Amino acid sequence: MKLIGIFGLFLVGIFIYNYIQISKFFINKLSFQTNKLSKSLRITQISDYHSNNLINKKRLLDEISQFNPHIIALTGDIIDSRAEEIYPTLDLIKELTKINSNIYFVIGNHELRNINGNTFIENLKEVGVTVLDNENTIIQIEDEKVNICGLSFFATKEDYENILAKINKDYFTLLLSHSPNRIIRYTKGIEDLILTGHTHGGQVRLPIIGAIVSSGQGLFPKYDKGVFNIKNTILYIDSGLGNSLFPIRFFNRVQICNITIESTKNS
């Protein structure tokens, strides 16, 4: 009986730990430097939300509001492929537009697979979100101009090259891609910062080792989570705010990322 009681407590502990990992989001804070800006640029990245109704949405909005980003990047899988209700997630994004209307979205594989995915994307446009599907744009922030490029989930190398051929390389260039799997092969180092998601950091991670498995990269993937330098370009892979397949996380709490790009012009 004693062993059964200990095992029961162990299971309860695992359940509580996992619940914290999948619902109590962490805010990752990153800082990079550039000589292409004269002032700091603040970016909030939200990736792989997967219609996660377990998180405290009010706290999420409060934290983002306090950071006061110039740009909010939604890097795909904001809804889950199995989600029948898209409007709770749209309501959250409507609240984000009240913080800042400079919201940019790239399509993830779960939006493509959801039966209401196209409706979700059209509704994003209606509330003022800019959808970048193999497209680029320029945003004016005070006296600064920033290139923002967005790759589709199934973008080819030609798609990538066409987008980058249109940019002004004197401006800071931000590229959004749901998955890092193609961009790590395509990048020519023209971008200053690439933001991606998709991997969930493997969802289950081991200390020192990292992710056990990642979609598109197999076992013990190299590009699983965090910051990587590829051809003079900074690649950041966010582990996301939600979960797919199973609501399980281990050593890998759900998260968003607040990124500050510091100017080196006056240093």
Results as ranks from 00 to 15, higher is better:
190 I>K: 06
22 I>W: 07
128 G>S: 10
76 G>D: 02
193 L>N: 02
170 D>L: 12
201 G>R: 05
41 L>E: 07
217 Q>I: 07
159 D>E: 14
61 L>M: 02
13 G>E: 06
42 R>F: 13
64 I>D: 01
94 K>R: 13
221 P>Q: 01
77 D>Q: 03
163 I>H: 04
88 P>T: 04
204 V>M: 09
32 F>Q: 04
65 S>Q: 12
171 Y>W: 02
56 N>D: 12
131 V>Y: 03
74 L>R: 07
18 N>F: 10
175 L>V: 09
68 N>M: 01
240 G>P: 00
66 Q>T: 15
261 I>T: 01
112 L>D: 08
148 I>D: 06
85 E>Y: 10
221 P>M: 00
138 I>M: 11
98 K>Q: 03
40 S>I: 07
220 F>V: 08
6 I>Y: 10
97 T>A: 10
253 R>W: 03
79 I>M: 03
83 A>W: 00
160 Y>D: 05
241 L>G: 11
248 I>G: 02
21 Q>Y: 10
7 F>L: 15
40 S>G: 08
119 T>H: 08
155 A>N: 05
239 S>K: 14
179 S>L: 12
150 G>I: 15
170 D>F: 09
226 G>T: 13
209 I>K: 07
190 I>Y: 14
121 I>G: 02
56 N>E: 06
139 I>D: 13
36 K>M: 12
192 D>G: 07
128 G>K: 15
221 P>H: 03
242 G>T: 04
174 L>W: 01
68 N>T: 08
172 F>K: 05
252 N>H: 06
64 I>K: 00
182 R>W: 15
241 L>M: 14
84 E>A: 12
75 T>R: 01
237 I>H: 09
237 I>E: 02
103 I>T: 04
36 K>N: 05
161 E>Q: 14
1 M>V: 14
208 I>A: 10
40 S>N: 11
210 G>W: 06
243 N>L: 12
94 K>T: 11
112 L>F: 03
161 E>K: 15
227 V>S: 12
96 L>E: 01
48 D>W: 02
23 S>V: 10
105 F>G: 07
34 T>S: 10
35 N>K: 15
83 A>L: 00
121 I>C: 03
264 T>I: 11
219 L>V: 13
145 K>A: 15
55 I>S: 05
183 I>A: 06
143 D>A: 09
94 K>Y: 05
100 N>G: 01
204 V>R: 09
60 L>P: 00
52 N>M: 04
232 N>E: 13
146 V>M: 13
133 D>S: 11
204 V>F: 02
9 L>K: 13
4 I>L: 14
265 K>T: 13
176 L>K: 04
92 L>A: 01
235 L>F: 08
160 Y>M: 07
88 P>D: 11
77 D>M: 03
71 I>Y: 02
60 L>C: 05
68 N>C: 05
